[in-house]
Design a protein around this nucleic acid. Sequence first.
DNA 1: GAGGCGTGGTC
DNA 2: TGACCAAGCCT
Length: 294
Amino acid sequence: MPDPRGELLHTPLLQWYAEARRDLPWRHPDCSPWGVLVSEVMLQQTPVARVLPVWTRWMALWPTPSALGGASPGEAVREWARLGYPRRALRLHAAATAIRDEHDGEVPADEGTLRTLPGIGDYTAAAVAAFAFGQRATVVDTNVRRVQARAVTGVALPAPSLTRAEVELASALLPGSDGDAATWNVAVMELGALVCTARAPRCGECPIASRCAWRLAGYPPYAGPPRRGQAWEGTDRQCRGRIVQALRESSGPVAGAELRARWPDAAQQERCIDALVHEGLVEPLDGERFQLPS
DNA sequence: GAGGCGTGGTC
DNA sequence: TGACCAAGCCT
């Protein structure tokens, strides 16, 4: 049952996307499902500009899941460079070995099967099903949420966490055919990334501005619960980042004393190292030395 | 379900 | 200038 709210938006948005879309390597027709999967994991909470060079190098080193599975998790973390959230590199390595060992080395096309892989949640499973396999999956990321909130719901920003209603709305707006649906998903995301941005939306360039509920309501300001920022200075996050960076940039093991020189709070740093070891991001060696996992 | 988890660019 | 934000996931 087609949703009239979606029908009105499909043509202008798909036309806009055909002209305004960025030429990204993971969108090329010859990009493998593995390339799409890698891009989606790298793009979790990370801007396109920072992902591009890392993705390119990563795909040259490990063009298949089995190739990555043949590397050590530490190599994956090192090539992850400064993308942030290095646990993603560890999980991508684990996903690669699972694909090699349990799926004949082929990225699964089924959303439910993708969802079982480490580091693959609802968003990424739907994105791979849609963008790598052309399926009619409901892809809901932060861009889709913001575009829907404005264009359809008429509010400045979505709630802090994803609601059931948002997923149902995205599903209702989806075009009926597989191909159109896959393009629609990436078109809405692209609109959110390039035009309907969080900070300073470019409504003058928006193909659906004339139908935007937020604009028609006079741009009411965000009225939801406060959105809490993330502390940084002196946090475990910063401390952990410092530790992993030191191990990444060293060709060999790093002495605990050398790490200690990089962080003022010894107790905090010890706690962070313990946590990193527990998570598998750091491997302890004899003589109070540490390295990326072998 | 709230909170933890990196890094750097933007206005 | 320093909050805010970027194709989320996991516990």
